[in-house]
């Protein structure tokens, strides 16, 4: 096992006093590909926001073992995408943390953006207004924004929610390539996706169950039944899992 990179200790968090997640302990390792699964409203996105620092936890702490650069793909909110900005500028905004104040984007930055747009099939939309994109295109734009800075840790919240099957496959290929030198934390309630790509699985439904490794053993099923469908590779059958026992 690699060195720990992020340690999450006793985290409880929520919005306006209501508790969404409770007593979460989790370690993300260097070069990990951690899949976070769980039902809607189970606290997947909330946990992600706490780790990134967008939401202050009510209790507990997040410890970063070294200084890391984050990339983040938020869960899409399609209502709020009418700001007059071009696709390329949105992608370039992923480099904002590396620019000093007054500093403009240089040729290199633009080349990088062009390269990523090529990879994600966005080249023809480079100058298009962001507000006129489709859901899938928005998601690809945000993915580009998340990876343009070559982050140390890449957080993805439902990366395939709006994309078509063809792109999803392509995306996972890109992610596996990235995972060679990038730690990836991916939230998904997507079926059939998580366990074929990730190295470790965490299942969250208010509390968290950690599954080291990506294979679902019968022991895990007995101990921590997860409320989502998981399709695994290997010798295990595809199956739908039951609710967490403690949620009844």
């Amino acid at each position: 096992m690699n060195e720990p990179l992020i340690e999450i200790k006793n985290i409880s968090a929520g919005y306006n006093g209501s508790k969404i997640i409770e007593n979460i302990n989790l370690t993300v390792y260097e070069n990990d590909f951690l899949g976070i699964i769980g039902p809607n409203g189970g606290g997947k996105s909330t946990l992600l926001k706490v780790i990134i620092g967008l939401l202050k936890p009510d209790r507990g702490e997040v410890i970063l073992k070294r200084k890391v650069k984050f990339g983040y793909l938020p869960q899409l909110n399609l209502n709020d995408s009418r700001f007059p900005i071009t696709v390329k500028n949105v992608i370039l905004s992923g480099l904002a943390s590396e620019k000093k104040i007054f500093q403009r984007f240089n040729k290199n930055d633009h080349l990088k953006a062009d390269e990523i747009m090529e990879e994600f099939g966005l080249t023809e939309y480079s100058n298009a207004p962001f507000g006129e994109l489709s859901g899938g295109q928005i998601q690809r734009t945000f993915l580009s924004r998340a990876i343009i800075s070559d982050p140390d840790v890449l957080f993805l919240d439902e990366p395939t929610a709006f994309t078509d099957k063809g792109f999803s496959k392509n995306l996972y290929k890109i992610l596996l390539e990235k995972n060679k030198n990038t730690t990836i934390v991916m939230v998904s309630h997507d079926t059939g996706v998580i366990s074929s790509y990730v190295k470790n699985i965490a299942c969250i439904n208010r509390t968290l169950h950690y599954h080291s490794g990506n294979e679902i053993t019968s022991e895990i099923l007995d101990k921590y039944v997860c409320p989502v469908e998981i399709i695994t590779h290997g010798t295990l059958p595809h199956r739908v899992l039951m609710m967490h026992k403690d949620k009844k």
């Binding site: 967008l54 938020p74 700001f83 905004s93 943390s97």
Partner: peptide
């Protein structure tokens, strides 16, 4: 003129701007 990119990025997406340490 001086803070164009900061103003643009914060206005477009506050959450991401925060992650970018703006």
């Amino acid at each position: 003129i001086l803070f164009y990119k900061e103003i643009l990025f914060v206005a477009f997406d506050e959450q991401y701007a925060k992650i970018m340490n703006l």
